[in-house]
Every structure is written in structure tokens, then in C-alpha cells.
Design a protein around this nucleic acid. Sequence first.
DNA 1: TATTCAGAAAATACGGTGTATCGACATGAG
DNA 2: CTCATGTCGATACACCGTATTTTCTGAATA
Lengths: 230, 230
Amino acid sequence: MTVWDRPEPPARPAPLDRERIVATAIALADEGGLEAVSLRKVAARLDAGPMRLYGYISTKEELFDLMVDEVHGEILPEEPPGDWREALRVRAHRTRQAALRHEWLADLLGGRPALGPNALAVGEATLAALDGLADLGTVLRAVETVSAYVIGAIRREITELRAERATGLSEREWQRAHGPHLRRMLATGRYPALAKAVYDGPDSDAETSFATGLDWVLDAVAVRLAPPRA
Amino acid sequence: MTVWDRPEPPARPAPLDRERIVATAIALADEGGLEAVSLRKVAARLDAGPMRLYGYISTKEELFDLMVDEVHGEILPEEPPGDWREALRVRAHRTRQAALRHEWLADLLGGRPALGPNALAVGEATLAALDGLADLGTVLRAVETVSAYVIGAIRREITELRAERATGLSEREWQRAHGPHLRRMLATGRYPALAKAVYDGPDSDAETSFATGLDWVLDAVAVRLAPPRA
DNA sequence: TATTCAGAAAATACGGTGTATCGACATGAG
DNA sequence: CTCATGTCGATACACCGTATTTTCTGAATA
């Protein structure tokens, strides 16, 4: 019996903490979507029984909140923005990038209050960049309006992306096909404008779509924040 | 043994159809949120075994799709709009009203492709109202941008509404309170701009918030659809 | 009318979920 | 060395979506 064949001690439970739990949950969600995240699976990956997690987390919802806040850490820009418009634009694009890395984010964003430290830091940075540009009410509305656009646009983009992937077709082909269903619907002639849009609409890549819509919204906001001198 | 004490026949199973199933599911969701909708409960309300539903529905996801399309029936406006702006505005407000009646809609909107007949009809009406105002690509972007805003704004509004209800406090009080958590966070002094916003921000009612943001976005869209003559 | 048969409805079953409860056990204190 | 404490794991419960099997009923046939 040498050191080598002496059996390992029975794998003392690795010390656990929220960070490791959240990281594992995020990994699972990245791989298989939100519905692949179960407390049992998270625990299993950490060589622990399911109940072990309840020492660090009190409910599955809370785990989701922690996951969202963790990703907000990726959204927070590292360098201060040039001006308010840049700040909002960068935040929007970083949010989108995070959602592309973690598609499940689209399912949670806006669906629960985001009050974790990272989310608050993002909010703080955003508000700071707009401070003093107008009265507080206007500034808040500006942020909310842009946020609403960002959340909605990301949600749609991820949804389309999943649908495409589900059919294995390219974006354009998906729009035309999507099973026989959509085609049959359009063929009824009851949706002529839709049909024209689907068949004659230009295909544009998702990023410029997002950026263009964002620019429109930023323009709208600009009028209220920094009204052009008459 | 008279007619009166003859036992009822064993309650012949009421004939079932998708409409009744969907209506029941919507009722359940209206009462207890999406997570209160289970195939077993829907079936129970219809005096049927769970498996009975599978004759009319092939999966729970499909039931959700049917619910969403059913509500799109409430969104479709009954009279044709005056102009494109009115069309977009009415669609937005009707969508919001539907989400206030059926809060679970906020959880599903934008999260799945909406290809049911009612959703398509809504899309058709919208596109028809914008037909010819600009090249097709611009029109599509306009609709998408407004839709993104609407979905995001509704999502946030419903989320806040639920959070308020959970604490039983008024909106304003909620922002100040939300457990000790937010207050503690703000008290750290790491989020001065946020703190100012929370404590000094004007409270506005949700409807005008929504309407104002919407108007901003519509203004932005207007510039591209009907550019002001130079 | 009696019998078969097809189709629908029901019951049962399976593998999963979140979480409450409780028993074993390891560790530190007296 | 004994005992208390508190953590971990196993077990348990109620529920879920859905596959499979069984039962039943109403119509067609002999």
C-alpha cells in the first residue's frame, strides 16, 4: 500500500459559496437554457445534495436574481463614457452582447426588479451620465424609454434567433418558411401587407437593426435632453 | 324509485374543444399567474382527466401560444385608424390594456413567435396603416422599433406592479422601501445618482409614463416615415 | 338481438421538479 | 470522554408534463 493506491479521502465536500453556485447555474443556463437549470442539477455539478444549496440561497427565484446580477457585471462599462448619448448607446450594446452570450437573459430581463449591486451600479453609471441634462423627471423618462426599447428589441432578437435555430434554417429562409404554417396563412390572402413584408422585405442583420432603432430612440430622447437651440 | 331519486347519469363528459380549453387556461392565469396554469388544473376545471387535453393540444407550450393569440383578439382594434400614428398609438395602448387585464401576457409577449391568426391580423392591420409611407425596410423598422418599446415598457410596468402588490405598498412607498435592501444599498453612498432619483424623482402614473415614452418614439419614427418638408 | 370492434376516455406510470422535515454525524466545548 | 450544536444528506411530499396501458362505450355487423 503506497501513497498512490491509497484511496482518496471520501471527497470532503468542497466548500460552497454563492459565487460558485451562481457560476454553475449560469453555465447550465448557457448550455441548455433556463429550463435546464434545476437546483438538483446545480447541486450535482458541485458534488452536493440538493438541500445543500439552501444554505446559500433561499429559493430558486433568488438564484435567478443572482444570475441576472452577475451578468450585469459584464454590462457595466469599464471606462466612463464620453457623453450621455455614448453612455446610453454603450449600455444598450453591452446589454445586447451579454444577452447574446447568455440567451436566457432575454427571458429574465425586465421580468423582475433588478436590485443587485451590479444592476444598481449600471443604473448609477447611466444616471450619472445624464445628470443635470434636464429636470430629473425628464432624465428618468429618457432612461426608461431607452431601456424599454433595449429590453424589447433584445427579447425579439433572441426569440427569432431561437426560432431560426429550431428550424436549422437561415434567418431569411426562416421568415419565408417557418413550417408550412406561416406560408399557408399568408397564402390565404387575408394578410396582404404582411405577405409583402415577408416576401419583399429587405433582410438586414440583427446588429444594425438594433443599432438603427436605438439611434432613432436616442434621437427622440436628445430632443428632450439637449433641445436644439431655436 | 321515482324520477326524482333516480341518480343522474354519470355526467357524460362535456364535449371539449380548444376554445374552452384556452378560455379555462386564461382564467387560471388571470387568477394566479402563468405558474398557476397546469394541464392538470385546466383539465380538472373541465371535469376531465389530464390526458384528455392532448386530443386538442400537443404540448403546454402550444397552449401558451393559443392563449397569447386569443388575447391578440382583444388587441385588434375594431375600427380602422385615422392615420399611421394613430394606428401605432392605438395598438400600443390596446396591447397595454390587454396586459393589464392579463398580466401573464407580459411574461409571454415577445418571448415566442406570434403566428396565430389574431396576431397576424394585428400585424396586418399595423402594416396596412403604414403602407406606402416609406420604403418597406423603413416601414418595417418603424414597426419593430415601436413594438420593442411597447413590449419593454409593458414588461417593466407589470413587473413593478407585481412588486408593489407583493409588498402591499403604494408605488411611491415601494420605491422608497422595497424591504430594507434597497434602502441599505442606497445608504452606502455608492449610488448617489440613483439615490437622488429614488428620493427626489417625481412620481408619475404609469399610463402617462407609457404614453409619453410612446410619443417620443413615435416622434422619432415620424421623422423617417413622414420627414418634415425642409 | 347479440357480438364484435374501433375509438375515446381514464387510469396508471415515469422521471422530473422545488422544497420541508428529520436523522446521522462531525466538530468543538466542558 | 461526553455532550451539545449545527451542518449535511437522505428521505419524503406534492406536484408537474407526458407516455403507455387499460377500460369502457357506442356503432357496425352477423
